[in-house]
Amino acid sequence: MTNLKQVFDQQKVFMPFIVADDPDVETTVKSIVTLAENGADVVELGLPFSDPVADGPVIQAADLRAFKAGVKTATVFEIVEQARAQTAVPIVLLTYVNLVYKYGYDAFCQRCQQLDISGLVIPDLPLEENAALKAIATSYDVALVPLIAPTSGQRIAKIAAQATGFIYVVSAMGVTGQREQFSKQLAATVAQIRAVTTVPVAIGFGIHSPQQAHELGQLADGIIIGSAIVKLMAAQPADLQVQLADYAQSIKQALG
């Protein structure tokens, strides 16, 4: 199993996010490989849920494209399996708890281990409810990545102290999507996390430009870019892979 901490120790991590099966399996597999070959240090892959309450319109639209393609939980594992033939890039899955619950916590985590999936990000599974899944994920060496929000306040230390893999710091209130403004307390939040753990910190929600990647990269150990890349996928240009490669390179360069 790929150790996420080692990946973060070696560089400022660029973690792009794409939705599985958007618009089809072949494109997703190709895109994972392209991103990995052009600067992505970890790829975050979304398993669409019918009711994604933490996601904004761009990712919701991608989810709909995936559903149109007939995406199933099994599809995301099939995509990772195909990608694994071409790349060893660390992969984390983002999905909602009901899909993992229905698959079975044990079966889901076991499948993750088999496919060298390093971690799970589950926005609707807060600290108070994560014990059952966390115990099982840990036994399969899969990290359950916690989220910390601008509103987390006194919860930060408690969440950070129990974190594995990395900590996903939500940069702004609301749902996913591009932004020009970020929470002013970001630096303070990161400092509070650093005070209790050495688990790496990645910032996500709303980052789209190389300039933002550079600035937020100074604050943390890595950055996550979702909607900006998903938007690129949505346009479905003929030279999508070239555009993805260019974009990934520009972000990676800016991160330094």
Binding site: V97, P123, E128, P146, A149, G153, R155, V170
Partner: peptide
């Protein structure tokens, strides 16, 4: 106690972290 969030096995607080403090 935290168990009181539940009715038997049902209930809980499965909500994004952004809303937990509130």
């Amino acid at each position: 106690t935290p168990d009181d969030r539940y009715y038997g096995q049902f209930g809980g607080q499965f909500i994004p972290e952004t809303l937990m403090t509130e």
